[in-house]
């Protein structure tokens, strides 16, 4: 294990930023997000979760898929291939799990999403262990260890004014080897104890129960306060829905994909007007069933990681921990 003093971290980031485009949580106008590091930003490492999850790096808000050009009568098409190296520094264990879940979606079940795969394979991930749980954290309910992230290239812990770094993969070892002057041997010394979460959910039997709850009046009840905005879906690290659209300028244009939200009416509305999920009841139901029933059925894992973003930011506090509690309380015979 290696070590670097906290105040030296920007230097390490500077060194790594020469290897690839480096993203690290920074403050912009009071909002903490993963932003490209230019050596001058205000780091928010060690504070709570970023507002937006890091999924943006693999599955950008907007991504050009291909360009087309008309010249004379002929039309040509060119795929956009993004192979830039990225280094993602400071993600938490919950977000690391979310990337594993996105891998299931984009890389398995018959088709590989090439846009996602390229960005994913070109990204090194450096996780930072949590020393403190936020009020809204409940990752431990999903078996996530806030003190050690899954499947990352480097794990970092903050201990007494220093960062301790440990490589988890060969690529991580290589990255640590890139800045030998800045890193020293950590020596002996314990790692900080992972914090306990304030919020907990009991997930036992939830999926099986939901399999019998599709028509239950529960959904008509819980959807009432939902405003039908897309905030939860965009801040959710595991939500992966997208739209594909084109934008034209004269004889040329682009086909892009962008985040989309199952909470929007247009999402499932078909040409001709039929909408299988016409009101917020169906949309809210679909969102929670997706996280708690459909995702487990399809991929064998819950589609929630307990990052708490929706709890912190939903304008009306649609609280998934309470909804899970409510599901547990439903009397199916009642």
């Amino acid at each position: 294990m290696l070590k670097i003093a906290k105040e030296k971290m920007p230097e390490l980031l500077n060194a790594w930023a020469k290897i690839g485009k480096l993203y690290v949580p920074q403050d912009q106008d009071g909002v903490s997000n993963f932003l490209p590091w230019d050596g001058k930003g205000k780091l928010t490492l060690g504070q709570g979760n970023s507002v937006l999850p890091p999924k943006d790096l693999f599955f950008p808000r907007t991504e050009t898929m291909y360009r087309y050009q008309r010249s004379g009568g002929a039309l040509s098409l060119e795929e956009v291939v993004e192979n830039e190296k990225q280094i993602l520094v400071g993600i938490r264990s919950c977000d690391a799990r979310s990337i594993a879940l996105l891998d299931d979606v984009f890389l398995t079940k018959g088709y590989v999403d090439e846009f996602y795969r390229r960005r994913r394979e070109n990204t090194l991930i450096v996780a930072l262990a949590c020393n403190v749980a936020q009020d809204t954290c409940f990752c431990t309910s999903f078996g996530i260890d806030p003190g050690r992230a899954e499947g990352v290239d480097i794990q970092v812990w903050e201990v007494d004014g220093s960062y301790i770094l440990e490589a988890g993969t060969e690529k991580g070892r290589e990255l640590l080897g890139q800045a030998p002057a800045l890193l020293m041997e950590a020596g002996e010394g314990g790692l900080p104890e992972a914090p306990a979460c304030n919020l907990k959910v009991d997930l036992a039997g939830v999926t099986e129960k939901l399999q019998q709850m599709f028509e239950h009046p529960f959904w008509a009840q819980i959807c009432r306060k939902c405003l039908g905005c897309g905030l939860c879906t965009y801040l959710c690290p595991t939500c992966h829905c997208f739209d594909i659209q084109s934008e034209n300028r004269g004889d040329s244009g682009i086909k892009f994909r962008c985040w989309d939200s199952c909470m929007f009416s247009e999402y499932t509305r078909m040409a001709g007007g039929h909408n299988p999920r016409p009101s917020k009841k169906e949309r809210v139901r679909n969102r929670f069933l997706h996280k708690l029933q459909y995702f487990p059925e399809r991929y064998g894992k819950f589609g929630c990681v307990g990052c708490g973003r929706c709890l912190s930011y939903c304008p009306v506090n649609m609280d998934i921990t309470r909804i899970i509690g409510g599901i547990k309380e439903v009397d199916l015979n009642g």
């Binding site: 912009q28 106008d29 909002v31 997000n33 937006l52 808000r61 405003l227 039908g228 905005c229 897309g230 905030l231 879906t233 965009y234 801040l235 985040w259 939200s261 929007f264 304008p315």
Partner: peptide, 16 residues
Amino acid sequence: ARQYQRCIRCYACRNV
């Protein structure tokens, strides 16, 4: 431009 670069078009402002 900087403010709206951040906008994610979640439409929470509209819906509330």
